[in-house]
């Protein structure tokens, strides 16, 4: 069989294009019309005097249909480990992320001033939780929200490990793994839960529960471009600070604070009671695990070209002979 130079060039060209096309489009960004939110910490007072902050109770009421409904018979150890994660008896907790509490208020004193910080999923632009899920059941949408498909999640909790703020939380005894765990307890640990930015409400043109309920109007949602402009303006006008613009590669949640975030973060870790089981959710300069490895990602994408080029180099003379025949 002989190969014409033209055929060969077509094959190489096609192979090269397959590899190069993604690289060219890799600068695609989250669209300006997607949703973003701004949380103004100078306005939030943590609903002083109330047992539960209104945003927290609104979230818990509004999203309760999505909370896990545990079959106690399915609460089995993660074999061969002798433990499982069950929050069903701790649904009342409102001071941390749990499968039943997707938003909480962190409070800390900095320079004699009490600061209240609503914490929930940041809905990152390049979310490692979604992109590293081995079964792709955590989704980043073009509209902005990052959400979990509860019907397909195995609860491996990798998303929690790669999230700089460890937002997603696991509940055992629910989800697809309950189909087999009694017979073959080798994979799965439940389902992961976290804020989905009320994507169902957004699709209907409504506002997320937490934002509607805030008496201080500390949280706003809108077009990404508008929110980013608003945040930049706020920073300039009030000589404040922003968090969430670049952290973890950029997010759809921007915090504004008159006090520097590194100061707040330091206070969060200093004031933390080490006897408490839950660790404070930081406000640090979070690095994105995916962005750190961009060089290796690019190398894997150009690998086909390297292989093809090596083969062409090694067989150059042979083709000439074949074509000369």
């Amino acid at each position: 069989m002989t190969i014409s130079r033209r055929t060969l060039l077509k094959v190489i060209g096609a192979a090269g294009l397959v590899t190069l096309a993604p690289a060219v489009r890799s600068e695609a960004k989250i669209g300006p019309d997607s949703f973003a939110t701004l949380i103004d910490l100078s306005k939030c007072d943590g609903c002083e005097g109330k047992e539960t902050p209104l945003c927290v109770s609104a979230c818990r009421t509004g999203k309760k249909d999505l909370f896990p409904k545990v079959d106690k018979d399915q609460l089995l150890n993660y074999w061969p480990q002798k433990k499982y994660e069950d929050w069903s008896d701790k649904q009342h907790l409102i001071d941390r992320f749990t499968p039943y509490n997707w938003l909480f208020i962190q409070q800390v004193e900095v320079d004699g001033k009490k600061i209240s910080i609503p914490r929930r999923c940041m809905h990152c632009d390049n979310p490692p939780c979604a992109k590293l899920c081995p079964f792709g059941v955590k989704h980043k949408t073009a509209e902005g929200p990052v959400y979990i498909d509860h019907s397909l999640c195995f609860g491996g909790a990798k998303c929690r490990a790669v999230c700089p703020w460890h937002v997603p939380q696991r509940q055992a005894g629910v989800g697809i793994y309950t189909l087999w765990q009694k017979y073959l307890p080798v994979a799965g640990g439940g389902v992961m839960y976290k804020c989905d930015l009320c994507r169902d409400l957004l699709a209907e043109g409504k506002t997320p529960y937490c934002m509607v309920s805030c008496p201080q109007k500390a949280m706003t949602i809108g077009r990404r471009e508008d929110i980013l402009n608003q945040a930049a303006q706020l920073k300039e006008d009030r000589h404040g600070h922003l968090y969430g613009m670049d952290e973890n590669g950029g997010t759809s949640t921007i915090y504004f604070s008159p006090i520097a975030f590194d100061k707040i973060d330091k206070a969060l870790s200093t004031n933390h009671n080490p006897k408490e089981k839950s660790k404070p959710v930081p406000l640090h300069n979070a690095e994105n695990i995916l962005e750190k490895q961009n060089l290796w990602t690019q190398l894997s994408l150009v690998a086909p070209i390297i292989g093809v080029a090596a083969a062409l180099g090694l067989t150059r003379g042979e083709t000439a002979e074949t074509e000369d025949k």
């Binding site: 690289a23 960004k29 073009a142 950029g250 962005e291 961009n294």
Partner: peptide
């Protein structure tokens, strides 16, 4: 694997 690598390059949103 190439598709997975590509979407990890940055703020790239493909059909979930």
């Amino acid at each position: 694997g190439l598709i997975k690598s590509y979407k990890n390059l940055g703020a790239i949103v493909l059909d979930p």
